[in-house]
Design a protein around this nucleic acid. Sequence first.
DNA 1: GTCCCCATATGGTCCGACCATACTGTGGTC
DNA 2: GACCACAGTATGGTCGGACCATATGGGGAC
Lengths: 227, 227
Amino acid sequence: MRRARTFEDVLAEIERRIVADGLTPGDRLPGERRLAEQLQVSRSSVREALRVLETLGVVSSQAGRGPDAGAVLTSRPGDALTDLLRLHLGLSSLSMREVVETRMMIEQWSAGRAAGHATAEHLALLRAALANMERSGSVEEFVRHDAGFHLAIAEMSGNRLQAATMRALRAAVEGYAVEAVTRLGGTERLMAEHRAIYDAIAAGDREAAVTATTRHLTHTYPEISEP
Amino acid sequence: MRRARTFEDVLAEIERRIVADGLTPGDRLPGERRLAEQLQVSRSSVREALRVLETLGVVSSQAGRGPDAGAVLTSRPGDALTDLLRLHLGLSSLSMREVVETRMMIEQWSAGRAAGHATAEHLALLRAALANMERSGSVEEFVRHDAGFHLAIAEMSGNRLQAATMRALRAAVEGYAVEAVTRLGGTERLMAEHRAIYDAIAAGDREAAVTATTRHLTHTYPEISEP
DNA sequence: GTCCCCATATGGTCCGACCATACTGTGGTC
DNA sequence: GACCACAGTATGGTCGGACCATATGGGGAC
């Protein structure tokens, strides 16, 4: 058993305060010098702890003075997930197959949920994304709006964890997606598949939404399709 | 647009080296002092960058001398995910509902995959977990072995990202699970549900595995069941 | 050959200084 | 009185150096 490092104590104390004081995004933490004094540790240790919290998307630091300065609590789990995936993919401790597979799982689930409780605003967002896709002048642009469509569905699911994960997964497979679309040639069939997903969600038909999503992704990433 | 901080440059450079040199878990990074000299920055900045990488489960630092000392590349995405969930739950920027819902999604998916390609060793692991659950003397012990059962299924899916996520989700709902089992009274029905999942996986019946998993989780967390 | 101890390389912590940034209050100007 | 320029100040960002803690490896004593 290793003795806890100083910055880990700081980390634990900050986490304790967050829970005990019921802090939420928008609230501010004391300044680095003040925290160091309160906890009787050096400013370096406080800074390392804050760096960890920043990495996890829990705080955001801003120099200067005023209401927005200092360490402010935030909620950016997506950034942390994005970094996590990118680094582990780079390290080859995760494969593209695992990432795409996970994306497919979330998409199917979200599509089903979205079909369950889509509002008029949600549907308008999806239609806008579809229109943008149609107007795209390049594969990169198409993929970007494609991502917007799928992300909107993930957000419609009402589950922020899934939406954040989806965002991170999309970012991780960005280049891979461009390549996949290029390989497919035209975008006509892709557009039709997206419209089928939209229609199913708009109709509130969960089963059809899941099926359409599965068909779309299996077509786009045939090499990932389950055995 | 904010200028990149020094430690972010260091981070980018280390990531670049990982990709360019094809480094994988087990490889070592130069020492902090040496990195600082190479990149012409202070040791503090190098340390902050390493702290970030450690948080993301990519490096592990060890003092002393010898082959295991220094910053070694690792692959612990699960630890990062666990911290991420715990902190965001504490911050109320994620709800228990979202976490449990996600867990259900992964469990269903894993069960289906596991039924597809279970080996004799995998099945033996599951049987051992079941036996441990039966022998448990307390709710806490039961939940621990219960976690082992579900985790084994996630690992059988052959997707490390899902397995790591599952581990983090379990850790996040640990206390919640104990409470849920206590509320249910006895563990007889739970045991029967687990056996049903095992039987379906052993028989290679994917549909039955998914159905049994859904029934089990819906029973255990009725408040989460989809509308 | 074995054992012990010290040199050494590594991370961990602290301190103090200074820079960069951005608000805040003050005082002058019109 | 309204406005503007500027100095003051609180905040994070970076640096350099010192010293401590830990763990290994090698050399000397036996």
